[in-house]
């Protein structure tokens, strides 16, 4: 009986540890709200989310984060437009087309690049891409939407490519063989059989890549230019939410309205990425349950 008791005890303790992740998630919510909610004594939720003026240090200050949300949305969308085709196509290259030695090197290298610190990409965008953009297109600044989107895309591609490659690799060989045996060409097999079978994995890759882009701080902090206004062209500067938090938290007096407003921005960002992740989880789970037979 004592052994049985010990086993039960161990299971209970391990269960508690496993719940730590949930606990932390709860703590994150608690502390974001604890420090963020007070701003809504000063402005309404609607004014905060949809107000088009972000002047936190003016007198009187204005706390409308709409321009920041738009900024986040624009750089994320553009970087996705660049990163998804490049990421998925290069995954197709590695998984289906590349000669064996290339394949064996490319896979770990991509994984390696997914670990590149984002401050490095931000730096590169600032020092190399920005002056080039400025000169080439004769702009007032090279720190703008295009630059930020490109660097974000560069950051997200390895992630997308790596997960998409796993999904392509997992497609059973029988599918391919069946397709070839019916007289399909290689590209037809890839596009009509392999990619559709891997679609759930690829969608997960895309959503996770987007979530990474929307939450990324250093790149947008360093290369998006920092203008808290609704942009009119792709060469305008923007101030995505993470950049705003990172740039201003150091200067915001402790527990001032500005400080609370930045935490509230954090809540918005957190909820957005949470939604993305829940969708990604739902997509991968749903596809797993129904299988690829529904495709």
């Amino acid at each position: 009986m004592t052994r049985k008791l010990k086993e039960i005890l161990i299971r209970r303790i391990f269960f508690l540890f496993a719940c730590v992740s949930i606990l932390i998630l709860g703590l994150i919510v608690t502390f974001l709200f604890r420090e963020g909610i007070p701003i809504f004594r000063v402005v309404s939720v609607k004014e905060f989310l949809l107000g088009s003026e972000w002047y936190p240090t003016f007198d009187p200050p204005a706390f409308g984060i709409w321009p920041l949300i738009v900024g986040s949305f624009i750089v994320t969308s553009f970087s996705t437009l660049i990163a998804v085709p490049l990421g998925v196509l290069s995954a197709v290259y590695i998984s289906e087309i590349a000669p064996r030695p290339v394949k064996e090197i490319a896979k770990p290298v991509i994984e390696l690049l997914a670990g590149l610190p984002s401050v490095v990409l931000g730096f590169f965008g600032m020092v190399v891409l920005a002056p080039w953009l400025q000169d080439t297109f004769d702009l007032p600044t090279g720190l703008n939407i295009v630059n930020a989107s490109l660097m974000l895309a560069l950051m997200a591609i390895p992630t997308i490519s790596s997960i998409a490659e796993d999904a392509l690799y997992a497609v059973p060989r029988e599918f391919k063989e069946a397709s070839y045996a019916l007289g399909a060409t290689k590209s037809e097999t890839i596009l009509k059989v392999i990619v559709p079978s891997a679609l759930s994995g690829i969608s997960t890759a895309v959503i996770l890549g987007m979530a990474r882009a929307i939450g990324e701080t250093m790149v947008v902090l360093m290369v998006a230019g920092g203008a808290a206004a609704i942009p009119e062209s792709l060469f305008d500067s923007v101030r995505p939410m993470p950049a705003s938090i990172a740039a201003e938290m150091g200067e915001a007096p402790f527990r001032s309205d500005h400080y609370h407003a930045l935490f509230a921005t954090g809540i918005v960002l957190f909820l957005l990425t949470l939604a993305f992740n829940l969708i990604a989880d739902y997509v991968s789970h749903k596809f797993r349950e129904t299988g690829s037979g529904t495709l």
């Binding site: 992740s21 998630l25 703590l27 994150i28 939450g215 954090g266 957190f270 949470l274 992740n277 989880d281």
Partner: peptide, 23 residues
Amino acid sequence: IRVGVNCLAGVPSIVFGLFGLGL
């Protein structure tokens, strides 16, 4: 628990910064 771990993995690093600051 699994969904929680996945969500935690997706929390933006700046939000972790805010959380660390707050807690």
